[in-house]
């Protein structure tokens, strides 16, 4: 019994750690896509931010400067995406693809040129990283059944970006539904001409949304490089930006929906890791089947076989004035 609880808690804690970058990217996507800018460049921004934060953290020894660098680099890429999609009315998918490929290439170019370690950045000291935080009372509660292990290993003992992420989900949901900015943001994704006619700048709103998205993916990349790991390595985002995109769709472009989708996908991944090499009798559990679940579920949802996902009406459509 004790052991089962411990196993479950460990599984959930793993879920949370895996889901954190997904949640951050998905929340960024919530802002961007509700404002009408499709972003398949979450992956690239996260990767670039991971490299930038690892580089700066190793150079300065400060995780906070690393975080700042990660956010700045991701925001800069968001601005490029914004220029292409908002100012020059380019194809938003093409722009996102460009950002992903650019990030994949440039991180390696700079990593090799600066560090000569085959694309890695130097390993970080603990002082240069975000480490798990032990919340007060986790020691004394340890003996209490159920609550003890849950508190000590799930609620306590996470890194700062994990706590920040949970707070940001609340903030995202609240901003979209309760604030003037949120109302305008949703309006600009649905019907930009109504926003324009109301005397609000369509471009201004969309740039703000895209920049917020950059900030969120910046934190996600930083988390990968200096909280979850201790350096940058080649392609370390490993498609998580795309999974976040799938979660965004699976959550029907809503903050809480996307959050729970990320938790689900994170859980599946955590399970797959645990089942690697596990045999049930003579039968090896095909972990690939579990890994494929997020993609399959998203495909099925989009096809309308499980519920229906409707994007904001003008998501992905450049705004042009006129009749």
């Amino acid at each position: 019994m004790e052991d089962a609880i411990f196993q479950i808690v460990a599984l959930l804690a793993g879920t949370l750690r895996i889901a954190t970058p997904l949640i951050l990217c998905a929340m960024g996507g919530v802002f961007s896509e509700n404002a009408g800018v499709v972003d398949i460049g979450l992956e690239g921004k996260m990767l670039a931010a991971a490299f930038a934060s690892a580089t700066v953290a190793s150079a300065t020894g400060s995780p906070w400067l690393g975080l700042t660098a990660g956010i700045l680099v991701a925001c800069a890429m968001s601005l490029v995406h914004g220029a292409a999609c908002i100012t020059y009315r380019g194809n938003q998918i093409v722009s996102g693809v460009a950002i992903n490929i650019l990030a994949s290439g440039l991180t390696m170019v700079f990593a090799v040129a600066w560090f000569h370690m085959g694309g890695q950045t130097p390993g970080l000291d603990n002082a240069a990283r975000f480490l798990p935080i032990s919340l007060p009372g986790s020691e004394s509660l340890a003996g209490v059944p159920l609550i003890g292990p849950v508190y000590a290993n799930l609620i306590s003992g996470q890194t700062l970006p994990v706590y920040l992420t949970i707070a940001l989900v609340f903030l995202t949901a609240w901003t979209l539904s309760k604030t003037r900015f949120g109302l305008r943001l949703r309006a600009v994704g649905e019907e930009p001409k109504a926003v324009d006619a109301a005397g609000i700048s369509v471009a201004g709103l969309r740039y703000r949304a895209v920049l917020i998205c950059g900030g969120f993916t910046g934190i996600a990349g930083t988390y990968l490089a200096i909280a979850q790991n201790a350096n940058f390595s080649r392609e370390m985002s490993a498609g998580q930006g795309y999974i976040a995109l799938a979660a965004l769709i699976f959550g029907k472009w809503k903050a809480w929906g996307a959050f729970w989708a990320c938790i689900l996908f994170g859980f599946l991944d955590a399970v797959a890791i645990r089942l690697q090499g596990v045999h049930i009798g003579a039968f090896a559990v095909p972990t690939q089947a579990i890994q494929a679940m997020p993609y399959l579920l998203t495909v099925l949802l989009l096809a309308g076989f499980i519920g229906k996902a409707t994007a904001p009406k003008n998501d992905g459509v450049p705004y042009e004035k006129g009749e």
Partner: peptide, 23 residues
């Protein structure tokens, strides 16, 4: 100091300038 991935970066730049920023 220049890796093979420079080619990937150039692909990205071409997609960016010839595609997304074509206008």
């Amino acid at each position: 100091q220049v890796t093979r991935e420079m080619v990937v970066a150039i692909q990205g730049l071409v997609i960016l300038f010839s595609g997304a920023l074509a206008q």
